[in-house]
């Protein structure tokens, strides 16, 4: 079953001088359990696409169906709630609340979902364990490396039991060791837990790890390959 469906999705930015067609009639289906990279040159529309399917931005035209719901017509507050329960996010940076520890950051999302304390605690610890950071549970983001912070962000993204995780250039600020480390964790969660990951990247090593690679150019999908 498709967890993400777009139909003739377009986004036009009406900038100061000229209108930019950041996305141009994109038709895209993403199935449950995928491990998919969105690639393409800078300015090709990767971030725009991820933001729109993540319900962070509005499309200019076309439809977006996420987990069976048409999100283009949702009110802002419904959309926030929808994101909370259905989508996990990992950004390039500033993923974590600086004044909370790793564990609190992971628990925070579940707290907003009104889960009880025991469940929050147990799930936070098991997720931190899954990303290899149980020993760092009490540290604040500023006391962790960039790679560790991104792993906490992955744990946080999974805490809400989302339908899929969107990651916009999650490794852009990481060195190669941290990058492959993070990819290992994501791949394992994808294999073992069946978590759907969609991530954008410029990094060939990351592209190599993806099972499906969608290439954008000037807001068009120019290639869509699934590895055997």
């Amino acid at each position: 079953m498709s967890v993400i469906k777009t139909h003739q999705l377009s986004k036009i930015y009406n900038g100061s001088a000229v209108a930019v067609h950041a996305l141009n009639k994109v038709d895209l289906h993403i199935e449950e359990g995928e491990f998919t990279a969105i690639v393409g040159p800078s300015g090709s529309g990767k971030t725009t696409l991820l933001n729109i399917i993540g319900g962070l931005d509005n499309a200019t035209s076309g439809d977006v169906e996420v987990a069976g719901k048409d999100i283009t017509r949702m009110s802002e507050n419904d959309l926030i709630d929808f994101r909370l329960h259905n989508i996990g996010f990992v950004f390039q940076a500033y993923n974590l609340i600086p004044v909370l520890t790793a564990q609190e950051n992971v628990e925070f999302i579940m707290l907003m979902q009104k889960r009880d304390k025991k469940e929050r605690h147990e799930r936070a610890m098991s997720l931190l364990k899954a990303v290899g950071l149980e020993s760092q549970a009490d540290k604040r983001p500023s006391q962790m490396s960039g790679g560790q912070q991104q792993r906490v962000a992955v744990a946080r993204a999974l805490a809400s039991r989302p339908r899929f995780v969107l990651a916009d250039e999650p490794t852009a600020n990481l060195d190669s060791v941290s990058t492959s480390n993070l990819l290992d964790i994501m791949a394992r969660l994808n294999q073992e837990e069946g978590t759907t990951f969609v991530f954008s990247t410029h990094d060939q090593r990351v592209i190599d790890r993806a099972r499906r690679v969608i290439t954008l150019e000037d807001g068009h999908i120019v290639s869509d390959e699934t590895k055997a």
């Binding site: 962070l56 507050n77 926030i80 909370l84 950004f91 993923n95 609340i97 993204a157 809400s160």
Partner: peptide
């Protein structure tokens, strides 16, 4: 700004 954006993105509603 970025932090607030992140919080709203991950599901913190405006009331909160």
């Amino acid at each position: 700004v970025r932090e607030i954006g992140m919080l709203m993105a991950v599901g913190m509603n405006k009331d909160k």
